[in-house]
Design a protein around this nucleic acid. Structure first.
Length: 210
DNA sequence: GTTATGATTTACT
DNA sequence: GTAAATCATAACG
């Protein structure tokens, strides 16, 4: 049975418990995050939306992951923090890609947020993207998500549920679609993992699932 | 110190 | 379909 999320409700009661992020594998958690509400408060502006697309990246044996083979570098160091920390890195020189770190310290699993359905502060998000009216491209694709939420590498290494960035539980049961991750062709066999997850029938998806 | 490149987006042919 | 934009990072010498 399908349900659509019409209203985002959030208060301290429904804050996503970070402890949960320690007790499940990253591919399961990436599905759990779909349908959750992400809220940022950056430069005094509150913006947010329902997470509609994620990808899982696992440290040890996932070639697509920055921390493949547990390899720690200056860039990916925040992935080695305990679950609930935020990993933001610059991609192609232009885009800030936003990840939520899961698992215990030194097990560098992370979940990339690829798309959201805008719910809060839409005017602010439009202006951050230099857009006049609401279109899907506002918040589809990981670079666009970060831009409209005001997420920059300044947030790298910070902790979820702090003032700037909060995650709330999803209000309803939802349905998930799966596909291959985007832009990881170099990862050989791991590129075939169905570790990309979308909110079923949501138009706020960066690329159609096939 | 130098160089190649990427978990992308966008515009254009 | 192809390509440009654009730079911090990683890998190498």
């Amino acid at each position: 049975m399908k349900t659509s999320i019409s209203e985002a409700s959030f208060d301290s009661e429904t804050l996503f418990p970070l402890s949960y992020l320690f007790h499940h594998s990253v591919d399961v958690l990436a599905q759990e995050l779909v349908g959750c509400l992400i809220i940022t408060e950056i430069d005094g502006f509150i913006t947010g939306g329902i997470i509609s697309e994620t990808e899982a990246y696992a440290a040890y044996d996932d070639k697509a992951c920055h921390a493949y083979n547990n390899r720690k570098t200056l860039r990916n160091a925040p992935m080695f923090l305990p679950a609930g920390h935020v990993y933001v890195y610059r991609c192609y020189g232009l885009h800030s890609l936003f990840n939520i770190v899961t698992n215990k310290a030194d097990t560098a699993d992370a979940i990339l947020i690829r798309s959201i359905e805008p719910r809060v502060g839409i005017e602010t998000m439009l202006s951050r993207r230099n857009m006049q009216k609401l279109e899907y491209r506002l918040s589809c694709g990981p670079g666009n998500v970060s831009q409209c939420l005001g997420i920059s590498t300044k947030l790298n290494g910070s902790l979820l549920q702090s003032t700037s960035i909060k995650l709330y539980q999803r209000p309803l049961t939802i349905e998930i679609v799966k596909g291959k991750r985007v832009g990881v062709d170099y990862a050989g066999k791991d590129a075939d993992k169905l570790w990309r997850f979308g909110l079923r029938n949501s138009p706020w998806i960066s690329k159609r699932f096939v």
